[in-house]
Design a protein around this nucleic acid. Structure first.
Length: 283
DNA sequence: AGATCTACCTGGTTGC
DNA sequence: TGCAACCAGGTAGATC
């Protein structure tokens, strides 16, 4: 389930494989995956990849058409649950779950190759757009702040006066960007906050502790190249290792690492939620 | 407006 | 062995 650390890892492993490469053409195998921008193909390609970056859980590939240096367009990928990006050699055929393919021209010693966007559950998408179109894309325009560079005051401002459960607020990409079900549970556990606690009932101290925990789990996970639940892989095909450091996610019924109490599973924000009823009180 | 719920998807797992 | 039921979860959209 690519969340911020996984998308960051994919961006870092993909960039060296596609930077400066020329995308000659794109092939859409599942139309709904490329519902936006397909009509631009003929005008944009061939285009050179000038960079790969991440915003929230979006992976952005900046491309420049017509030999220009500055990006003229970008590919915005949302991997949702099962999206994957790989570069294979040009002879590789699409398989059952391949949704879009990009032909990459040979560059120096690098032979012709192909960028694959595979997605088993087809929730993911890729949009081809101009940079100036981003602001009129509601999802982009409404994204909340990036958590890693957030200050406690900014975090508190982002939570505002809302009274909903803290878990549902943290999952809301308009409040704070990039956090999903795994990291919200891990961060709540580390800061000793019950996931159903009303955000308005968190003290300044608790808010600061929660932000610190969010930044800790995200930073540690990035250092481990993300978490591999089931089938996540980075752009090199390598698994992450942060799943070995989970303290609550997927551990319902097992003892709390701090106090030994049995971890409980509940549904919060319509998501499976695991927490320690002893260490995380105050709902 | 804000909070909550459901649809969208498919493959793997569970249970009979 | 076969097969139905269930589960995973980010986001849009609907409802209250």
């Amino acid at each position: 389930m690519p969340e911020l650390p996984e998308v960051e890892t994919i961006a870092r492993t993909l960039e060296p494989q596609v930077r400066e490469r020329v995308i000659r053409a794109a092939h859409v195998l599942l139309p709904k995956t490329m519902a936006v921008g397909q009509e631009l193909f003929s005008a944009v390609f061939p285009a050179r990849v000038v960079g790969v970056r991440r915003r929230a859980k979006l992976l952005l590939v900046d491309i420049a058409a017509d030999g220009q240096k500055t990006p003229t367009h970008l590919l915005a990928f949302h991997l949702k649950m099962t999206g994957k990006l790989f570069v294979h050699d040009a002879a590789t055929s699409p398989h059952k779950h391949t949704r879009v393919m990009f032909d990459l021209a040979p560059e120096g010693d690098i032979p012709e190759s192909r960028l694959f966007f595979d997605d088993v559950r087809t929730f993911g998408y890729c949009r081809l757009m101009r940079p100036e179109d981003l602001d009129s894309w509601p999802f982009w325009a409404n994204l909340g702040p990036e958590p890693l560079t957030l200050t406690p005051a900014e975090f508190s401002r982002a939570l505002g006066t809302r009274r909903g459960g803290i878990k549902s607020l943290l999952l809301d990409q308009k409040v704070i960007a990039g956090i999903g079900n795994i990291y919200v549970d891990e961060a709540c556990f580390r800061s000793g906050i019950h996931p159903l606690t009303g955000a308005d009932r968190l003290s300044d101290l608790q808010r600061a502790a929660l932000l610190q925990s969010i930044q800790d789990v995200l930073t540690e996970s990035i250092a481990e190249c993300g978490s591999s639940i089931r089938d996540y892989r980075d752009a090199n095909g390598d698994a992450g290792a942060f799943q070995n450091l989970f303290r609550v996610y997927g551990r319902a019924g097992q003892p709390c690492m701090i106090c030994g109490t049995m971890l409980e599973k509940i549904i919060a924000a319509a998501r499976t939620t695991v927490f320690c009823p002893c260490c995380q009180q105050g709902s």
